[in-house]
Amino acid sequence: MHSLIETLINGLMLGALYAIFGLGLSLSLGVMRMINIAHGDLIVLGAYITSIAMAWSGFSALASLVFVLPTMFCIGVLLQWLLLNRVVGRDPLSSLLLTFGLSIVLQNLLLEFFTADTRSLPAGNIALAGIDLDGVSIGVLPLISTVAGLLLFAATHWFIAHSHFGRQVRAVSDDPATARLVGINERSFFPLMTGCVLAAIALASVLYAIRTPFSPSAGPERLLYSFEAVVLGGLGSVWGTFVGGLVIGVAQVFGARVSSGLGPFFGHLVFLIVLIARPQGLFGRVPR
């Protein structure tokens, strides 16, 4: 029984990371109407930048976030400003092609600079630290992931619901042409948004890289999990993405319990079953 609860908790904690990956994708999809195929590779890029920052500063993985978050934010701003803004608002194919190309370029650059060897981020003592709750042991690191995920989602939700920025975001996602009529210049706030998205996925990326090794070609897999979280939760629902991530995480961890190689397979299986039952996702609205 205890081991079942432990598996469930582990799954939820892994799922919180998938949820953060998904959040970034969900925002670019929902607001900018852009499918970012390079999302997974940017996640991997975040992990590599962290490994450089750790080697350079001697900080631990978590402490090096001080450098990594601003760096990724800047990369996001520049990426959107210089490149992605050119295809925003055009037909969906332009952004697909552009980000698909970006994904290939990123993968090959990473391969060039860091070789094909898999790496993982050493976490030090914190990786082994745990709390014992009535026989159920919970790692400190997964706990941090979950709390980070919850805080990030709560903050995003609050921001979108109550700030001027959030109102602009919703207006653009409803009706970009009319949003321009009330003076919204989406091209000026999209870079800011992509910056925030990249900072958020960098956080998740570091926590994920501590538990799962990464290589230059790991991006597409990360992208797939992000997509599953978003689609499972239902497009356009922030908390839906959170629940979607959790479901994928739990399914994977239970799958890995059955047989160590079957984790992702179980994730995909649950994803497909839910989609057959509810094509619009768990919290998605039926399109009008």
């Binding site: 001027h164 109102r167 602009q168 919703r170 207006a171 996602s173 409803d174 009706d175 009319t178 949003a179 321009r180 009529l181 009330v182 003076g183 919204i184 210049n185």
Partner: peptide, 30 residues
């Protein structure tokens, strides 16, 4: 549009085109 709005030219679009995800008050505040 943003520049013209700043010069005092505003358009009420055909079909109203209010933002469905925003409340009436939020539409106006924006």
């Amino acid at each position: 549009e943003r520049r013209q709005l700043g010069r005092g030219i505003a358009l009420v679009p055909e079909g109203r085109r209010l933002f469905p995800s925003l409340t009436v008050q939020e539409n106006l505040l924006l």
